[in-house]
Each structure stands twice: as structure tokens, then as C-alpha cells.
Design a protein around this nucleic acid. Structure first.
Length: 435
RNA sequence: GGAACGGUGGCAGAGCGGACGAAUGCACCCGCCUUGAAAGCGGACGAGGUUCACGCCUCCGGGGGUUCGAAUCCCCCCCGUUCCGCCA
């Protein structure tokens, strides 16, 4: 959620920042929200005045009754009753406006960071690192898409996955399954130096998905378990962000850094028919996610660190990659500043997004009610609180990395060489061969 | 799934229609005392909204109701603990 107070004090700053997302409808919503906010404030003031009067009268009634002056008390009670009626009307109006405002606010995206590159679409995302490790020319045996290569090796069985669950589900077998799990293990071990490992729930509440921004606007993208009012988590970002929802954190304990391996479930409603083969896009995939709670000052350094970690995970595997920065027109709703790591897959001849690292500013923290208590240099708590900053990013998204390994490390005989860093997790297997 | 009991400030825990944003203890903070510390003494000590400010409003798990007035009474929901049942 954007800062409601900023809406009041500097509407122009908000519209200027959000106009960089190149979607005029957002600006209309912002102006509308500002008007509703103003109205809400006026109603609230009027209502508070009435309530103050009622409170005063009630106290007076109490003391009159103690003194046995029943008639005087009853006169005040009558006045209070009348005030109560008009207060009720205002309260109704307040609730109405408040609900309308909330609905608008929940749909208004985050303001991009001033340094985020301007652009209208993903075509405008600048490459900021790399490409690194990209060959000038790829031999024929690496120009085989992973779904064919994997099929040959018997390590991917999406046909039977479809039998079990339907289209767009994947199933790895044998060394393919081991490789998928090895990547998770690798992703976790690589980041254990700075993160606490958390095993989060896979089913999450509506409040949890609202906090990170998937709801209410993108409900169609998530699996709903309506009977129990739960959702299948589309990313560990959601549960990890709500670990400290509705809590006030001490600035002295920040940053708090968490990581989690989890399955991620996505309906892919808007991308039906795209990337239907192999491991590029599916309804369920595994991922290791990083998460940080910080002060506003700490956030930029954490962003750099997390991007570097996502980058090092890919570099460590020896895969060709690049890092792009997401431009203002391509950013996700909650994002303030975002970098993607993309790996090159020669068989599919495509750059695959394997990590997205984002700084959310206070946007999610405001929705989740995550506050920070500051302390001055003497360690004394400073009056009041502010919203925390959150960051998250994939340390390693399994399926596309899996695909990139199969394509990049495919040998002439069709076998696939396992990257050395994964050897500890592969039960001695260093080359995947057809059985 | 059934039953019982609970949910109050950082924690523990009282309050069960009016002087309660909330006793008391612990923790934390500031003084005094002390060479220093402990103990002791005195003081301060939740959050949000609004206001230039004084102040005013809201918050005792969530929502609704009764009342001039609700932490306190009534209804619904959620969560927790214990016991029973079932179970990886």
C-alpha cells in the first residue's frame, strides 16, 4: 500500500512517481483515492467531535446518578441518545467511504525507485551485468531443447504428470528428480551463512496473500481452496513476509534475514498455451526464496547483496547468465526496485528468468502491519514507530535452472554433466546417462 | 470431530457496567545512594489517528448487539491450551 499521508501532503509526488509506470488508469485511481481520503478525514473529524460530546455526557450522567439527581441525568441521557443517532449515521458513511478507499488503495501499485530505469515494457529492461559465460557459438548437441534431451534420458515424464494432475504439471524421475532436489539443497546451503532457514506453510490465508500484493487484484493467478478459505502459496515470499505480520520489530535486531525452500503454485491464468513444453512454466515448482526485513537505510545494501547471491548461485553452476533491471513499466505491483537474473538456455534459445530480487520499500510492510521501533544512539527507544522495509528474491528457482543445466551441459552422446557444486547432493552421480 | 477452559500493555497477571488506556509484579529507561555494582528510594514507561499546539478520538483476539455509558452483559466467528477420538 502506498503512504496515505503522502497522498495528502504531496499528491503531485505520488502521481509523478506512478506516472512512470505508463498506465494512466493508475493516476485516475490515485486522484480518486486522494479525494476519498479528504472526505474520510472530514467525516472522521465530525464523528470524533460527536463522540467526544457523548463521552462527556456519559461521565456527567454517572456523577449525577451518584448524587441522586436522576431527573438531570435523564435529560442528559436524552441528549446523548440523539447524538448517538447522528453518530451512527456518520459511522455508516465513514465505513462506506473507508471501504471504497481501501479497495482503491489495495490496487494502487508501489512507487518505483527514482533510479529505476524508465520504460514501457519488458523490451526496455536494461542489461546491467553480463552476459557472462555466453559462448559465441553453440555446438549442435547443445541446441537440443531440454524437453527432448530429458525425454531421451528418461528424467522428465510430463505425460504422466498430466495423467496425475493435468496439463502444465511436471514430473522429474530418477536422476532428474535427484537433480531438482540437489538444486534446492545447493540454494539453501549457499545462503545459510546469512539466513535463517524456515519451513513455511504451503497453504496461506487471504490476509497473507493480501499483505504481499497478490490479493485482491491477482486472485485469478492463485489456487483457491475455498472451503477452508485458504490459498496455495504462489511463492514463499508470501508466508515469509507474514512471519512478522502485525509485529513491531526493534531496529537493533534488523536486518532479519530468512530463507525457505517451498513449492510454489500458480494457475498461470494469463499465460495459457505459452511455454507448454518442458520445465519452463508449470503450475507447481520448487524454489528457494530469500527474504529480508530492514530499516529504510539498510534496504539498498541488502538489495545489492541479494542480487549478488542470486547471481552467484547461477555463476557457481557455470551457467551463462545476465542480470537485467526491471523498468518502471514492467515492474510488479508491489515492487519498488527489481533485478532479474536470466540464464541462457541454448536448446530453447532463450533467456530464462531464474531469479527476481525486489525491494518493496514499505509497501508490503504497510499492508502487513510490520513496524520498526527505532532507538537513538544511547539505545533509548524513540517515540513512535515506522513501517519496515522488506526485500525478497529467489535464491534459486529449480525448473528453469534444471532446464538450463540439461541444455548447457549436454554432451555429444546425449548425456548431461552434473555441475561440480551439485556433486555432494547427487549420491555420487556426476554424469546423467540414459539407462 | 467432541468436551472443558482461556485470549487484557514487552512479559506475568488483576479487573467482570460509570473515577479504567487499564491495579500489581517483573523487565526496560532516568535520577538519588555507592569507589563501582547489587539492594533500596523517587520518577518515567503501549500503539494508532487527528491537530501548529492544548487537546480530542480509537484500540483489552475479530465482528455485531444491549446501554446515556462496555475490557466488563448478550450473539456470531477466529485463535490457543488440556483431555478424548482419529492419524503421517
Amino acid at each position: 500500500m502506498i503512504d496515505q499521508r503522502l497522498l495528502r501532503t504531496d499528491l503531485d509526488a505520488v502521481t509523478a512517481a506512478l506516472s512512470r509506470r505508463h498506465r494512466p488508469a493508475i493516476i485516475d485511481d490515485v486522484r480518486h483515492a486522494a479525494r476519498l481520503d479528504e472526505r474520510l478525514l472530514a467525516i472522521a473529524r465530525e464523528r470524533d467531535d460527536i463522540r467526544a460530546r457523548i463521552n462527556l455526557l456519559s461521565k456527567e450522567v454517572g456523577s449525577l446518578r451518584r448524587d441522586g439527581r436522576v431527573d438531570d441525568a435523564e435529560a442528559l441521557q436524552t441528549e446523548s441518545r440523539e447524538l448517538g443517532a447522528s453518530e451512527k449515521a456518520l459511522a455508516g458513511e465513514h465505513e462506506e467511504v473507508s471501504a471504497a478507499l481501501d479497495e482503491l488503495l489495495l490496487g494502487i501499485p508501489n512507487m518505483p525507485h527514482p533510479d529505476a530505469p524508465d520504460g514501457a515494457s519488458d523490451d526496455d529492461n536494461p542489461v546491467v551485468i553480463g552476459p557472462i559465460g555466453l559462448l559465441n557459438e553453440y555446438p549442435e548437441h547443445q541446441r537440443v531443447p531440454h524437453w527432448e534431451a530429458a525425454d531421451e534420458l528418461g528424467i522428465l515424464d510430463n505425460e504422466r504428470a498430466a495423467k496425475i494432475s493435468g496439463a502444465m504439471f511436471t514430473m522429474q524421475r530418477g536422476a532428474g528428480a535427484t537433480l531438482a532436489r540437489a538444486l534446492c539443497q545447493y540454494g539453501l546451503d549457499l545462503n545459510a551463512d546469512a539466513h535463517e532457514e524456515v519451513r513455511v506453510p504451503s497453504l496461506v490465508s487471504t490476509a497473507t496473500l493480501t499483505a504481499t500484493g497478490q490479493l485482491p487484484k491477482f486472485a485469478d493467478d492463485a489456487y483457491a481452496i475455498e472451503r477452508d478459505d485458504l490459498w496455495a502459496s504462489p511463492t514463499a515470499e508470501a508466508p515469509l513476509t507474514s512471519v512478522y505480520a502485525q509485529e513491531t520489530l526493534d531496529d537493533t535486531e534488523l536486518p532479519i534475514r530468512l530463507m525457505a525452500y517451498s513449492a510454489s503454485f500458480r494457475r498461470e491464468a494469463g499465460s495459457a498455451g505459452r511455454d507448454t513444453r518442458g520445465m519452463l512454466r508449470s503450475h507447481e515448482f520448487d524454489k528457494v526464496e530469500m527474504m529480508a526485513y530492514t530499516t529504510s537505510e539498510q534496504a539498498p545494501d541488502l538489495l545489492d547483496d541479494m542480487v549478488a547471491r542470486a547471481e552467484m548461485a547461477i555463476a557457481g553452476l557455470g551457467l551463462p547468465y545476465r542480470v537485467i533491471e526491471i523498468c518502471t513499466g514492467d515492474m510488479g505491483q508491489s515492487h519498488h526496485r527489481t533485478y532479474d537474473v536470466e540464464v541462457y538456455a541454448p536448446g530453447a534459445d532463450a533467456w530464462l528468468e531464474v531469479s527476481s530480487v525486489s525491494w518493496l520499500g514499505a509497501y508490503q510492510a504497510r499492508r502487513a502491519g510490520i513496524r520498526v521501533k527505532r532507538h537513538d544512539e544511547d539505545g533509548k527507544p524513540v517515540k513512535g514507530t515506522e513501517f519496515a522495509h522488506t526485500l525478497n528474491g529467489s535464491a534459486l528457482a529449480v525448473p528453469r535452472v534444471w532446464a538450463a543445466i540439461v541444455e548447457n551441459f549436454r554432451n555429444e552422446d546425449g548425456s548431461v554433466t552434473v555441475p561440480e557444486v551439485l556433486h555432494p547432493y547427487m549420491r555420487g552421480l556426476t554424469v546423467i546417462r540414459s539407462e
